[in-house]
């Protein structure tokens, strides 16, 4: 394993440690008593106090933090106060919706953005370029959740091609499950695709002006072939950076869109956990979001090294 990889893994661990501390502190500060959440507002104060002791809430914060993190590392997530099921299973179940949703959305974003961005860059200044730029400007201004509602109006209410909301479940077959993810993924992808298309366009334009592109043409490659063989990979360095940031945006956008489509994903779980004051669940869900974001950043760093041989040296 290279020093590069070790260094990145250490950074990843340190970031997660910092994130877990911040999340623990924030949730500590939040009002609400888990014991009271479990027993209900009319419960006997003595019973609440007893439960607090049993749940370990009377221990000092440091001990509780260590117990929490230790439990997570040991695969022991505890039981949700409000759902009365093991949190580990609950998270896995919800992640099985949010992760595919984000992945499909990211794939859509990438496909749309790269083709539109490269198209516009290759025809800089043409009517096609102007049209792409205008559309992306519009795409950035459209709220994702409103676009989602429009999609529902057209494809669910009018045409009936896709469900207006809810999740068929993976048990219903991959086709049915994916069908419930199509509209949310499109809605999620729109804004990000508009942003990424603009980034791609300027990255490609920058690369087109590089000396090595002229060399590629001097070898006898056509404009198009030079762009595909030599230009795109160089432009990808900038594009991948933004894609990493966008994946974080996509998970955040999923929180809103899962509510639009009533998808029982991680975002909806976070929303519900907070409104029900299920603090232990809140802590784990928010940390899981952080893990996803940090893991994606780690992958982006690895991708850099794959794309650009110079990265290993400078790291």
């Amino acid at each position: 394993m290279s020093a590069f990889l070790v260094r990145r893994l250490l950074t990843l661990a340190a970031t997660l440690l910092a994130a877990s501390l911040v999340i623990f502190v924030v949730v500590e500060v939040l009002p609400g008593d888990p014991a009271r959440t479990i027993l209900g507002p009319e419960a006997d104060p003595e019973a609440v106090a007893a439960l607090r002791v049993r749940l370990g809430l009377e221990r000092p914060p440091a001990a509780r933090y260590l117990a929490w993190v230790g439990g997570l590392l040991g695969g022991e997530f505890g039981v949700s106060y409000t759902y009365h099921v093991p949190i580990g299973g609950l998270l896995a179940e919800r992640l099985a919706i949010t992760l595919p949703l984000a992945a499909v959305a990211m794939a859509l974003t990438t496909a749309i953005a790269l083709s539109a961005g490269v198209y516009a860059a290759a025809r800089r200044g043409s009517a096609g370029d102007v049209a792409v730029m205008a559309l992306t400007q519009l795409g950035i201004a459209v709220p994702g959740f409103w676009f989602a509602i429009l999609l529902i109006l057209l494809f669910a209410v009018e045409l009936g091609w896709f469900p207006a909301g809810g999740f068929a479940g993976w048990d219903a077959g991959i086709g049915a499950a994916l069908r419930s993810l199509v509209l949310p993924a499109i809605a999620l992808a729109l804004v990000q695709a508009a942003i990424l298309a603009r980034v791609t366009r300027s990255a490609v334009i920058e690369v087109l002006d590089e000396d090595f592109m002229r060399t590629a043409r001097a070898k006898g490659l056509s404009r198009r072939a030079a762009l595909w063989r030599h230009g795109l990979r160089n432009a990808l360095v900038a594009v991948v950076t933004v894609m990493g940031l966008q994946f974080a945006n996509l998970t955040a956008g999923a929180v809103v869109l899962e509510n639009v489509f009533a998808l029982p994903g991680l975002g909806r779980l976070a929303f519900q956990a907070i409104s029900q004051r299920d603090l232990q669940l809140v802590r784990d869900v928010v940390l899981l979001f952080a893990v996803v974001v940090v893991a994606v950043n780690f992958l982006v760093d690895l991708l850099y090294a794959v794309i650009d041989p110079r990265v290993k040296l400078s790291a």
Partner: peptide, 13 residues
């Protein structure tokens, strides 16, 4: 590092 929407929801709590 924290998704903005999540921070907003936490704040609501």
């Amino acid at each position: 590092a924290l998704p903005a929407v999540l921070s907003a929801i936490l704040l609501t709590a």
